[in-house]
Amino acid sequence: MKVLVTVKEVAAVEDEFQIAGTSIDETYLEYDLNEWDDYAVEEAVQLQEAGIADEVVAVTIGPERSEETIRMALAKGADRAVRIWDDALEGADLLDVGAKTAILEKVVEEEDPDIVLSGVQADDDGFGATGVSLADALGYEWAAVVNHLDQDSVESGTASVRRELEGGVEELTDVELPAVLTIQTGINEPRYASLRGIRQAQRKEIAPKTLGDLGLDAAAVENELELTDMYEPETESDATYFEGGPDEAAGQLADLLREKGVGAQ
């Protein structure tokens, strides 16, 4: 069984930074493996360690610099990686979900995995839709926001998963493979890369591919979305302190809640 994990290098801004138009200068950015993807990698490596997966392949869309981050996935146990980049991608302001889906769809067709694990969302652009969109394009089954995967079920060709719904409700569901699962933080405890793993990762393959290699052209990354503005949201804090003893404070809180409409029906 083969597992494909989509991973993304995400940018985080330093405490102090400046926005120039619709971008932030490199000097204020630090790059790291997307947190959700770290959990997806761990889930894949656990499937491999349990003898269920034979191969774990990581795929990313990113510039050469992102190899540093992708190596972390290899150091934690992924067998090899594929990195998609070329001038058309370099020139694109924004890669929307459609563009990522078009690229990843081709990679999935080439790799033919039994299961695709993807982080629920990326820490920087936060579309939170790529995994499900990919499943739709491929005609695969899918489950989003998975916080438990029954490993034994995977072996039988059906993934039994638990997924988070809104309002603290969870759903247990079975998904036929091949499928895309988007992985929620907390599904496991991601390991640290060991020094041994880091050394081995230096010898693992990161295959660079262009859009052309995947049978795509620049049209694939033409976005329907346009980045129009970037600003820091004002943070407004509106805190009310209730004075007095517990009785008095509770009374004031009850008044406020009633006023806001809690329990109005």
């Binding site: 190899e67 540093e68 190596r71 972390m72 150091a75 640290y192 890369a193 020094l195 880091i198 050394r199 990762a201 230096q202």
Partner: peptide, 14 residues
């Protein structure tokens, strides 16, 4: 080098 940076970052995180 990449490997040294990864080792530093991993040790720091741990």
């Amino acid at each position: 080098g990449d490997e040294e940076r990864l080792i530093r970052d991993t040790a720091r995180e741990f």
